[in-house]
Nucleic acid binder design. Structure first.
Lengths: 208, 208
DNA sequence: CCCAATCTTGGACCCAGTAAAAGTTTATGA
DNA sequence: TCATAAACTTTTACTGGGTCCAAGATTGGG
């Protein structure tokens, strides 16, 4: 993995440069008001090369996706003995919050990120698509230790739904202008309530 | 609502004609191999008019969405006294299956529909987007009787996830060529197992 | 040092979707 | 019934994402 040649290093550098230039342009003028051609020009590269590294325009902005999937896969696979999948996931997200990790959604400095994201339907859609990719990845990991395909699929769906909801709640509040640190504190409770619903079920919900 | 003038009747007729012509073309040659211009020509209408009725190309194919949302909203709103939201939803989907309703996913005659759908990433994506619209709609209905925004959001997410998983399982099997009637029978069990997970929780899942 | 593999480039091209203006049909009301 | 308004359609032109291809530049390996 390490010890790459000049070629590979240049590629990574180019990739980073393109993504950084693009992110700056999007932040300054909005996603939809920047064309791929402009990004290419600003990065001293041809349009074709941009699409070489990033198959869709949206990927220029949402380029941390692979890392996130890998992290979640690891959480499930490497969970300690005696820990259920949901427990492991709950703990992981508590840790993200405590560490003020960007993926917790609630952290200073990414406000602009969410603003850019919200301003573009294409970006929002791509983000949700990434959510589904997470679901697929989780289902695959679960299938490694559970031969019941129906169950793995449903559990993966439920798990992803909870993560997505919790995440979405934080992002909404931040976009509404709530104080980031306050949101972060509140998220601890939101997280637990959401995971409680998942762990214990919503059987009686709404009975009247 | 009824008693429409000539204008409105013509509009509905045109809308239907465009959608039908489009569906036929897609079935014959695949979604991606048919341009909107071709649809327009085949329907004796200008391209602009097609976009007038269907804001995106994908909507030419997935044009039953509004009905589905309305049905699910009604299931929750009009559920009988003493029935929880999840129970109502479970029952509704059992009824769809028993009635061999297209929305149960498992019914003869829609195989071609799924094939066309699967063949186009754009269509698949639009379908998932519709799934999110269902989630939003459910969250809104739940919010009418539950002031806890966090809870409504999470429950709506979980509910939609289960529905989506169950649906997806049926469609996958049918696309794999499994006998439709057999899939339909199996879905009864799939449905109950999925809703059981939702009602009673997945707390201990994967503990080792 | 040279060849082969691997980027990169430029340019032409396709198609979904938008904008604006002019044309056509239906509705309205005097 | 007829003129005018309102609603719908068409035409034309354009933007911009994304693909294709052939030719040019770079790098790695022998």
């Amino acid at each position: 993995m390490p010890e790459q040649g000049l070629r590979e290093r240049k590629k990574q550098a180019t990739r980073r440069r393109i993504a950084d230039v693009a992110t700056a342009l999007f932040a300054a003028r909005g996603f939809d008001n920047v064309t791929v051609a402009e990004v290419a020009e600003a990065a001293n590269v041809s349009k074709m090369t941009v699409f070489n590294y990033f198959p869709r325009k949206e990927d220029l902005f949402l380029d941390r996706h692979a890392d996130r999937i890998a992290a979640l896969e690891e959480v499930v696979r490497e969970r300690p003995e005696g820990t259920s999948v949901v427990e492991a996931m709950r703990r992981h997200h508590h840790e993200l919050l405590a560490a003020r990790h960007p993926l917790s959604g609630a952290i200073e400095g990414v406000v602009g990120f969410w603003q850019v994201l919200r301003s573009s339907p294409a970006l929002v859609q791509r983000m949700h698509e990434q959510g589904r990719e997470i679901e697929d990845a989780l289902a695959a990991v679960l299938a490694e230790e559970d031969p019941d395909a129906t169950r793995t699929r449903v559990v993966a769906g439920l798990l992803t739904a909870v993560i997505g909801s919790v995440f979405g709640i934080a992002v909404s509040r931040i976009l509404d202008g709530d104080d980031v640190e306050e949101v972060r504190r509140d998220q601890v409770g939101v997280l637990d309530r959401a995971f409680d619903l998942l762990e214990h079920g919503v059987g009686g919900y709404g009975r009247r």
